[in-house]
Simulated scan of single mutants.
Amino acid sequence: MTIFREPLVIFTLVSGLLFFIGDRSDTPDRSTIAISDIDQQNAVIQYQRLKGAALTEAETQEALQSYINDKILLEEAYRLQLHDDAVVNTRLINKVKYLFTANIREPSDQELYRFYQKNKDRFNLSDTNRTGYVKAVDANAFSQVRKYVYGAWKNQQKEQHINARLRTLKNQYHVEIESAEQ
């Protein structure tokens, strides 16, 4: 049998055998999930807030085990590439946006009134406009549209905060747009 003396055939057989043996190893591929002291404390605090009282030792262990279980499930979701799902991505994006805007201060009445004066055209309709800001019958009275002015002001502040954070983040990432034409 001269075919088994060919270097390419020998290489292919040995490579296949090594691949087969390596793929059948009995040791499972394990990833390390690090749980810091701060993670543990936060898990216990969150569990305690849900309960509304101090935790017993058993409840503390249950809180930690629940946190560990969630981390394992999250790692499995990443392994299964579920994070590439559009719904999951939208939720993650919205969560990051919420984190960026969570500390927006409340406006004073003077700030709201100035915002109203600068943007009166957005609040001068007797019915809801395209953007959904106004339902008041007399939109010229600030007191009638105050809650809509507040909503518009808050949305503008959120957008400004998100854009500011995005400008900072864009400096930390290099984005390459790949062309389908090659």
Rank of each mutant, 00 (worst) to 15 (best):
D70V: 09
I10K: 15
E106H: 05
K170Y: 11
T12I: 12
F19E: 08
Q81C: 03
S66F: 14
G22F: 03
F11M: 14
E178R: 05
Y67R: 04
I21K: 02
E181I: 03
N171F: 12
L17S: 08
A54G: 00
V145A: 08
P7A: 04
Q110D: 13
R5N: 15
D138R: 06
G132C: 07
V87G: 06
T56L: 05
D84K: 10
G22L: 06
N94R: 02
D29E: 04
L17A: 13
R30Y: 15
S179T: 08
H83S: 03
I21P: 00
N119E: 14
Y148L: 06
D23C: 08
F4T: 10
V96H: 05
T131C: 12
Q81W: 01
Q156L: 13
A58L: 06
A77G: 13
N94K: 05
V149C: 02
Q160F: 10
Q160Y: 09
R49K: 10
Q144N: 15
V88A: 08
I10G: 10
N69P: 00
R5Q: 15
E111M: 05
H161D: 14
Q182K: 13
Q156E: 14
T27N: 11
A54Y: 07
Q41E: 14
F20I: 04
E106K: 09
R146I: 06
Q110I: 12
A34L: 11
D39H: 05
E181G: 02
N124M: 12
G132E: 07
K118E: 15
A136H: 01
S108H: 07
F123T: 06
R30G: 00
R114V: 14
Y173V: 10
A54T: 09
Y116A: 13
E181L: 12
D37Q: 08
G22T: 00
L73H: 09
H161P: 01
G52S: 02
F20K: 00
V134S: 13
K97F: 07
H83P: 01
L99H: 02
N129E: 10
S179F: 03
Y173S: 01
R167Y: 12
T12V: 13
F4R: 06
A141K: 12
R105W: 00
L73F: 11
R49W: 01
A141Q: 15
I72T: 10
Y113R: 06
V149E: 09
T128P: 14
R114Q: 14
P7Q: 03
H174N: 14
E181P: 00
Q160L: 06
I35A: 04
N155G: 11
L13M: 08
E159T: 01
I10P: 09
A180R: 05
V44E: 05
Q41L: 15
L99M: 02
A54C: 01
S25M: 11
R79G: 01
T2F: 14
T56N: 00
R91H: 01
D138N: 09
N119R: 06
F4Y: 13
Y47A: 02
S31Y: 15
L55M: 04
N103A: 14
N42I: 04
G16C: 04
K158N: 12
Q160W: 09
Q40Y: 08
R165G: 00
L99N: 04
Q81S: 12
I162A: 02
R5P: 09
E62Q: 09
D23W: 15
K95H: 10
V175D: 03
F123I: 10
N119L: 07
S108T: 09
A180N: 03
Q81M: 04
I35C: 06
